[in-house]
Write a protein that binds this DNA or RNA. Structure first.
Length: 158
DNA sequence: GCCAACGTTGGC
DNA sequence: GCCAACGTTGGC
């Protein structure tokens, strides 16, 4: 697989759109990001082929449940213009869209979740953003070494 | 369900 | 531009 060299963690609530829905759909656009820092990561830094840790939040337990990749770089989030959408933003216009999406493609579901508790307990993951208290950012950059370590913890062999 | 942490909004 | 109020996130 050619392309991106970046690593990210993306959060999703399994009750809303979990890894099983992504596996079913194959590809989806990552709609509804309404945080400027997360948007900037998607808009400015995510490249096709970048690898994504798929994280379930508001879950029991919370943790990394699989892998995905960026299939298309940032473009305007169509839901921001749809008045009936929960992601509608009246201040955004097609001429100057405020929010973007990327396309996210399913890669794999881990056999076992790598729980948040497990991530926090691993010294080699010190400093990983998701393990920090109060860290709510739903799109986070991940260091390559941390990414590889999470795959080890998942016993993921590709 | 609770509540701490955090981001955004809006009055001034 | 400050900052209190408010709404949301997300672990527990």
């Amino acid at each position: 697989m050619s392309g991106g060299t970046g690593y990210w963690l993306i959060k999703s609530e399994p009750d809303v759109y979990g890894i099983d829905e992504l596996a079913r759909d194959g590809v989806t656009y990552w709609e509804g990001i309404r945080n400027y820092q997360a948007r900037n990561f998607m808009r400015d830094d995510m490249k096709v082929g970048d690898q994504l840790l798929y994280y379930h939040s508001n879950a029991k337990p919370a943790g990394v449940v699989g892998l995905a990749r960026v299939a298309r770089e940032a473009y305007p989030d169509p839901e921001q213009f749809e008045a009936e959408s929960k992601y509608f933003d009246p201040k955004s216009t097609p001429e100057e869209p405020r929010w973007v999406v990327v396309d996210v493609e399913f890669v794999a579901k881990f056999d076992h979740i790598v729980s948040l508790a497990h991530l926090k307990a691993d010294p080699s993951l010190d400093g990983m953003l998701v393990t920090k208290r109060g860290q709510r950012l739903s799109v986070q950059p991940v260091e390559p070494a941390h990414f590889e370590r999470v795959l080890e913890l998942a016993a993921y062999t590709g």
